[in-house]
Design a protein around this nucleic acid. Structure first.
Lengths: 162, 162
DNA sequence: TCATAATAGTTGCATTTGCAACTAAATCAA
DNA sequence: TTGATTTAGTTGCAAATGCAACTATTATGA
């Protein structure tokens, strides 16, 4: 077997280069959806992520939120502070361990979640509109495999079938 | 036909939500590859993009570079300034139109390009290692279609078959 | 029981980013 | 011509980001 550098002079066109393509696509998508959150609900992407995970499973601590959203702790801390101030989430500190605090959506928070959710899903559908269901599944499968390689540590992307 | 909101209560799990998945994957990939550029060559992502397009087609103006890399003009301006300072690219202002300047890789720039290129392609291969050639093609096709929808304006992502 | 280490969350700060406003040069229109 | 527009590129600045350092609290172990 030849050592390495088996790959002599492949071309490198930026717009065929996967990291570049992912970055451009992801930026375009994030921008667009962030504009919508911002314009219609005055909510940032980070705030939205927190609302989204709490909408699914209420009563998480900051650290748990950070793990699920892949945000770093300072980001969660600040976004949560602002949401608390706006009475969208509440924080109740744990009596047993006073370092911790449980975060929950308030009623207002639930309303906002209920309002954003269909808009978010609609945008996702729009994005996927030109893909068949099989292609869409394929896409998710491929993203999962790429994610395993890009961040092997993460336990996420587990095959969450149903 | 029912009006809209045909889609009653779909679930919204963040880690099955396409914009989120793209963002997380793209960040992980960008981070990793940016670290490599930085550590081994002291080059930022933006600088790399400029080097990459000039490596393919030398003698572009800032505006052309901006269009091809989807960077904004200030970003190109600053990254190019720093590359010029480090003698990685040269700028020769156009005699006919003195607003313009052609950017070219210097010899040193070419060396750097030649050094980074295989590393970049190797990382891309690593990322794609678990995908078959057909899957890889499929992935690119899907990304192309998503990109059309996410940024319909862009003329890029043209079917650059061969 | 007291010093050390670990954990939850916050604050501060330096860097990056994105965008608006600007300068310089060329074009267009009267 | 020359005044108004357009284009190329730069500068400045406000906001977002990422990370290190910090406080407060709990756990560990001699």
């Amino acid at each position: 077997m030849t050592k390495s550098a088996d790959h002599p002079q492949e071309t490198l066109r930026l717009d065929g280069f996967l990291p570049y393509r992912l970055s451009v696509l992801s930026n375009a998508v994030s921008r667009k959806i962030a504009d919508m959150y911002e314009r219609e609900f005055d909510i940032s992407i980070w705030q939205w992520r927190i609302i989204a995970v709490l909408g699914e499973s209420d009563g998480l601590t900051s650290t748990e939120v950070a793990n699920r959203t892949l945000m770093d702790k300072p980001a969660v801390s600040r976004a949560a502070a602002s949401l608390t101030e706006r009475n969208i989430i509440s924080r109740k500190s744990d009596d047993a361990d006073r370092r911790k605090a449980e975060l929950r959506l308030t009623d207002k928070g639930r309303e906002i979640y209920a309002a954003i959710k269909p808009r978010a899903l609609a945008y996702e559908r729009e994005l996927l509109a030109s893909l068949s269901p099989e292609e869409s599944r394929m896409l998710h499968g491929l993203l999962t495999r790429l994610s395993h390689i890009a961040s092997p540590d993460r336990n996420l992307w587990s095959e969450t079938g149903e």
